[in-house]
Nucleic acid binder design. Structure first.
Length: 280
DNA sequence: CGGCAAACCTGCGAGC
DNA sequence: TGCTCGCAGGTTTGCC
């Protein structure tokens, strides 16, 4: 499911239910996630109080008293599900269950197991192997047109491929890259190094606006993403190009039977959706 | 180093 | 109905 807006939506839901609560019980039902869970995972969590829930790129950072941090990534299919009453019987993909003194149960569910959970210390977060190479947050003030242009300078790969590189900017995935390039009017096949000046300005503004609107909509629900409380996100209805192959481009008023509408191509084994007339 | 493909694992929808 | 195939929102590795 999850790119930055979906993870941010999850963060907010977790923060509302977990902050200030004490963890009473942790059950590891399956420890072979993308990285194996630490041996003492449950023991290090039980009895701790949750001090905050933060996000870095697509990672969730659950702060604990005593300085520990539970680091979680949802991969492609990971979900965090919150239950206030009696939780349902765990299914085969409910890998970790965390219960609090407020009677809340949190299920970490991940069919494909590309997600992970691990433990770190607050002081070591910046140098943590999973976080250390991440580029700036797209929504941070520091990331503006000139900063983006500088990061893209000299890159000969396509802008689509380079935006996937989490070292350039961290948090975008296939959907929001497609949508941002559409809003910016840039072809996904353009060389990244040519995105300078006004183009870089347009691109960073597009990225920030798409992400901001997606967060406000509770993220996008494709297949199975939902918020931890069960509500659906609805930003998928606002997609201009993603998954809309053959549909009319919302920015052009040309005849779809002649132009073919939104195009789908494959770049580094991932689908790219774009309007060849509007994006250059 | 840059750029790309494949691998990791499971589920689902489309098409036959 | 039931099978096979292709495809899926991420990240890492390995190859050229």
């Amino acid at each position: 499911m999850p790119e930055l807006p979906e993870v941010e939506t999850v963060r907010r839901a977790l923060a509302a239910k977990l902050v200030g609560r004490r963890i009473t019980r942790v059950e590891v039902r399956r420890s072979d996630l993308r990285l194996p869970l630490p041996e003492d995972f449950a023991a290090r969590l039980e009895g701790r109080r949750v001090t905050g829930v933060a996000r870095r790129a697509k990672y969730l950072l659950i702060g604990l008293d005593g300085g520990g941090v539970l680091l979680a990534h949802l991969g492609m299919s990971g979900r965090m599900l919150l239950f206030d009453g009696a939780p349902p019987p765990p299914g085969p993909h409910d890998h970790v269950i965390v219960e609090t003194d407020a009677g809340t149960a949190l299920y970490f569910n991940d069919a494909r197991r590309f997600g992970l959970m691990t433990l770190s210390d607050e002081g070591k977060l910046a140098s943590h192997p999973l976080l250390r190479h991440l580029g700036p947050e797209p929504l941070s003030e520091a990331l503006n047109g000139p900063a983006l242009a500088a990061a893209l300078a000299g890159r000969n790969a396509t802008i689509k491929a380079v935006l996937f590189d989490q070292r350039i900017m961290a948090g975008l995935g296939n959907i929001y890259i497609c949508e941002s390039l559409f809003r910016a009017g840039l072809s996904p096949r353009r060389r990244a190094g040519t995105v300078v000046g006004k183009r870089a300005e347009r691109l960073i503004r597009a990225i920030k606006s798409v992400l901001g609107q997606a967060i406000a909509a509770g993220g996008a629900t494709l297949r199975d993403h939902r918020q931890p409380t069960g509500e659906l996100g609805y930003f998928q209805h606002a997609f201009a190009v993603y998954g809309r192959q053959g549909e009319p481009c919302p920015g052009c008023d040309c005849d779809v039977t002649r132009t073919g509408g939104i195009r789908r191509i494959v770049q580094s084994a991932r689908s790219t959706f774009f309007c060849p007339r509007r994006q250059r």
